[in-house]
Design a protein around this nucleic acid. Structure first.
Lengths: 153, 153
DNA sequence: CCGAGATGGTTGACACATCATCTTTGTCGA
DNA sequence: TCGACAAAGATGATGTGTCAACCATCTCGG
């Protein structure tokens, strides 16, 4: 903290490239997913999280932890998804404050339809240009930064 | 396209880590900037773009190209920023459809106040954990992906 | 058992992004 | 020069994220 706070040229350049890649990657994938499957990237994340558990049913609270979403964000997004029939809410009898979210038939169909195209796109724009060693290095880099960000985001 | 569209385990893991890093990094930096300087990351980007030019005055159109923002996004954001006194609009006499945006004293003061802390935070959570070689490799990776994304985002 | 505080979830106000559409103005070829 | 088309920017509708406040319920120490 005593030294200059500034980034050197190389860092500056890398940082801008990082931001740029992310913005474009996100925009591209998100637009594609919306156009071909009618899902937002956030819908996709929720559906994936729900298919990750055996019976497709999770407590809101746990879903929030898993996705690292604020509770109000989760609540509102699920309301919208429920209105579209992709998920359903179920009461929680153990803890009457709580509630479960479960995958509907429609939601399952949607994620099944979207997943292959999504994965293919990610490969096409991201992984197909990188060597195995680059992918490993990138994995290490991300792990390092995640560590520095701490357990709380 | 004939092969399986899926990602292998290593790719899967790296992809999730990448998404996670981005979400958290963005959240952290954005929250910090808002809390300490009252600026959103988007405000910051606009102000940086304006300080990049000698007289702190740019055509909307050029600003849009530089930031890669949709024109309506730019228009609305600048309206909000102008209402807060960070920027001002000026007429364009060459092309009467157009308009200029210029940095105000307040805007300049805001970016000057915010920049050091922002840069320090980026270094702290991002670069300080990485070796020079990792930074260079990351730069190459970003460049590759940017290329694959094409000139249009 | 009770009351203070923590927790789960929803809601309202507002910041922000996107899409479609509109107005004004510029451009360029017939 | 005029008329079609493109470009610059603003705007309204809608979807989404954040923050703060809220209600209901749970938990736990006294």
């Amino acid at each position: 903290m005593t030294a200059s706070p500034w980034l050197d040229d190389e860092q500056q350049q890398t940082w801008r490239a990082w931001l740029d890649v992310n913005a474009r990657l996100f925009a591209r994938i998100s637009r594609e997913l919306q156009a071909t499957d009618g899902l937002s990237l956030q819908d996709y994340d929720v559906l994936v999280a729900l298919t990750d558990v055996p019976d497709g049913s999770v407590r809101m609270r746990d879903l929030g932890v898993k996705l690292q979403w604020e509770k109000s964000r989760l609540s509102k997004h699920l309301t919208r998804m429920a209105a579209r029939g992709l998920v359903a809410r179920r009461e929680c009898y153990d803890d009457r404050r709580g509630s479960f979210v479960e995958l509907t038939e429609e939601g399952l169909a949607a994620i099944r339809a979207a997943a292959p195209g999504h994965a293919a796109l990610v490969r096409e724009v991201f992984f197909d240009g990188l060597s195995g060693e680059q992918v490993r290095e990138l994995g290490r880099i991300c792990a390092t930064v995640l560590e520095r960000l701490g357990d709380e985001g």
